[in-house]
Computed example of a mutant assay.
Amino acid sequence: MQFIRDLRNPDSELSRTLNNLYDGVYVVDTTRTILFWNKAAEAMTGYSAAEVVGKSCKDDILNHIDENGILMCRSSCPIVKAIACAGTSIAKVYPKSKSGKRFPVETHVSTVMDDNGAVVAAIEVFRDISHQEEYRIIQEKFNGIIRKYVSTATYSDIQSRIAGNTPAGQTRILDLSVLYLDVVNFTGFAEKNSADATVRLLNDLFGICDVITRECFGDIDKFIGDAIMAVFVDANDAVRSAIKILETGIPELNKIREENNESCIAIRIGINSGLVLQGDVGTIDRKDLTVIGDTVNTAARIEKSSIPNRLMISEATLARLDEELHQLFVFHHEVELKGKSEPMKLFILQM
């Protein structure tokens, strides 16, 4: 076949073209005997053409493994797959160079057929993707770090903007439930304890609240000193999150603090529901994706009106609750809020 003859002739146009490619290229026959090995393959693997041509690629040459560390040369070899289906095969694999070091490559295999449609050879083109892998690992580590400092909504919005799905600076009006939580008499605690102890308390509390908020499908929008502001699409999730923090999170935290001879803490929680404006707020150099509006301000005021280690909600939140949760609340008191023509009714979780 002319194709095979041209491969074996180093002066043929085909051989010269393949040797000038940036990607590694080698050609095997149907028994996987190597017929051609280009210059880029030599540079990437350390094996010269003279060392490998005439040998089988499964004879301790490259020894590809997949992403799970499984040796592919005797089982799921991309070349074998391509030859078997007389088609193509694409895979990410880790060949071993002559020096013994493995490196990641993206490999594409295509078959060559004779005039009768029978497969006579397979061409594997492979590209070293070490830099891409390094970038991917760094990016994943970076993402992991960033997610500790921004809300899930902000992180998702950034990803959407990078993908070009969301225009920068776009604002939205959303119907959300806003939860505010803070530590009772935090100023007094900070005055009596060291800076390290104060920060440790907040990190322990915020860690518990973050886990529970996520479990209940919420998102911590921001940390404000000793306070947390979280948002939920469903008021029921907001209330379940608050109940779990009060009934499980805080008792567990205080149990550990008592065991360490540290003082227990109390918190207040308030929830309000309604329309909020979500958008970028800040300066040209730094912005936060956050929610603002009367609903948010009222949630903060409800929290300040609450009782230590109790949950208080607005009538707007109560109206959004399923019957199961609705019946857990009773009217507590009315509060006059600046800018409101009518007093706001507040409801408290029965203990």
Rank of each mutant, 00 (worst) to 15 (best):
I4Y: 07
R8Q: 14
S12I: 05
S12C: 10
E13M: 12
R16G: 10
R16T: 13
T17G: 05
N19S: 06
N20M: 13
D23H: 14
G24R: 03
Y26R: 02
T31Y: 04
L35F: 08
A40E: 01
E42H: 10
A43R: 12
M44E: 11
T45K: 01
S48N: 04
S48W: 06
V52D: 09
V52W: 11
V52S: 04
C57F: 10
N63C: 08
N63V: 06
D66F: 06
I70F: 11
M72V: 12
C73Y: 09
A84K: 15
A86T: 09
T88V: 12
A91K: 12
K92V: 11
K96R: 14
K96H: 03
K101T: 10
R102W: 12
V105A: 08
T107I: 15
S110C: 10
V112K: 03
M113P: 01
D115F: 03
A121R: 00
A121N: 09
A121L: 06
E124L: 04
R127L: 04
D128V: 08
D128L: 11
H131G: 04
H131L: 12
H131S: 15
Q132R: 13
R136K: 15
Q139P: 02
Q139G: 00
F142S: 15
N143T: 04
G144T: 14
K148W: 02
S151V: 08
S151I: 08
Y155D: 13
I158D: 04
Q159Y: 02
S160T: 07
S160I: 02
G164W: 09
L176I: 04
V178R: 03
V183W: 07
F189W: 14
A195M: 08
D196T: 12
T198W: 11
L202F: 14
G207L: 09
C209G: 01
V211K: 12
I212A: 00
T213Y: 06
E215S: 10
F217Q: 14
G218I: 09
A227F: 07
D237N: 15
V239S: 00
R240M: 07
S241G: 00
I243Y: 01
I250R: 08
I250Q: 06
N254Y: 07
K255H: 13
I256M: 10
E259C: 02
N261L: 07
I265S: 02
A266R: 14
R268Y: 08
I271E: 06
S273C: 05
L275D: 10
L275W: 05
L277C: 10
Q278D: 02
Q278S: 15
G279S: 00
V281D: 03
G282P: 03
R286D: 01
K287C: 03
D288Y: 02
L289V: 07
D294F: 04
T295Q: 03
A300L: 05
A300M: 12
R301K: 15
S305H: 13
P308N: 01
R310G: 00
L311W: 13
I313T: 02
L318R: 15
L318Y: 05
R320S: 08
Q327V: 11
V330G: 01
V330W: 04
F331D: 07
E336W: 10
L337D: 02
K338I: 13
M344H: 07
L346I: 10
